[in-house]
Amino acid sequence: LQLFIKTLTGKTSTVEMEPSDTIENLKAKIQDKEGIPPDQQRLIFAGKQLEDGRTLSDYNIQKESTLHLVL
């Protein structure tokens, strides 16, 4: 599924993920695209901070969801 990652600067990146992927996997993919180390990334979806060990489906993240990346 395609996700949009929006940064505080207003920049939006697109990443392709599976519902079974963990937040950790997602942060690794963001690191590949943006060069931001996972330990500096905080991802927010629906007002919640996402935890590394959980999966996208745990948070009911659907295709074309927008996640907010806070550093």
Rank of each mutant, 00 (worst) to 15 (best):
L1C: 05
Q2H: 12
Q2E: 08
Q2W: 09
Q2Y: 12
Q2M: 13
L3T: 02
L3P: 00
F4M: 08
F4G: 03
F4T: 12
I5N: 01
I5D: 01
I5T: 01
I5C: 03
K6N: 05
K6H: 13
T7V: 09
L8I: 13
T9V: 08
T9L: 12
T12E: 06
T12I: 15
S13V: 15
S13C: 13
S13N: 08
T14I: 14
V15H: 05
V15A: 03
E16G: 07
E16N: 11
M17L: 07
M17F: 11
E18L: 14
E18C: 10
P19C: 06
S20D: 12
D21I: 03
I23C: 00
E24C: 06
N25E: 12
L26G: 00
K27M: 04
K27H: 02
K27W: 03
A28P: 00
A28L: 14
A28R: 15
K29M: 09
K29R: 11
K29D: 01
K29C: 05
K29E: 04
I30V: 04
I30S: 00
Q31K: 10
Q31C: 09
D32L: 14
D32Q: 13
K33E: 08
K33M: 15
K33P: 02
K33W: 09
K33G: 05
E34M: 15
E34Y: 15
E34K: 08
G35E: 03
G35H: 06
I36N: 02
I36P: 04
I36T: 06
I36C: 04
P37N: 06
P37Y: 05
P38E: 07
D39W: 14
D39K: 12
D39F: 11
Q40C: 09
Q40L: 11
Q40H: 13
Q40K: 12
Q41G: 03
R42S: 09
R42G: 05
L43M: 03
L43N: 00
L43Q: 01
F45A: 03
F45W: 09
G47C: 05
G47L: 03
G47I: 02
K48N: 10
K48A: 10
Q49P: 10
Q49G: 06
Q49V: 15
L50H: 00
L50D: 00
L50R: 00
L50E: 00
L50Q: 00
E51N: 06
D52H: 06
D52F: 04
D52K: 04
G53V: 06
G53H: 14
R54W: 11
R54A: 09
T55D: 03
T55Y: 06
T55C: 04
T55F: 08
L56G: 01
L56V: 05
Y59N: 02
Y59A: 02
Y59K: 00
N60R: 06
I61E: 02
I61M: 06
Q62G: 13
Q62L: 11
Q62I: 12
K63R: 11
E64W: 15
E64K: 12
S65L: 04
S65Q: 07
S65C: 03
S65M: 08
S65W: 03
T66R: 05
T66P: 02
T66I: 14
T66N: 04
L67H: 02
H68V: 14
H68F: 14
L69K: 00
L69D: 01
V70E: 11
V70N: 05
L71P: 09
L71Q: 09
L71C: 06
L71M: 09
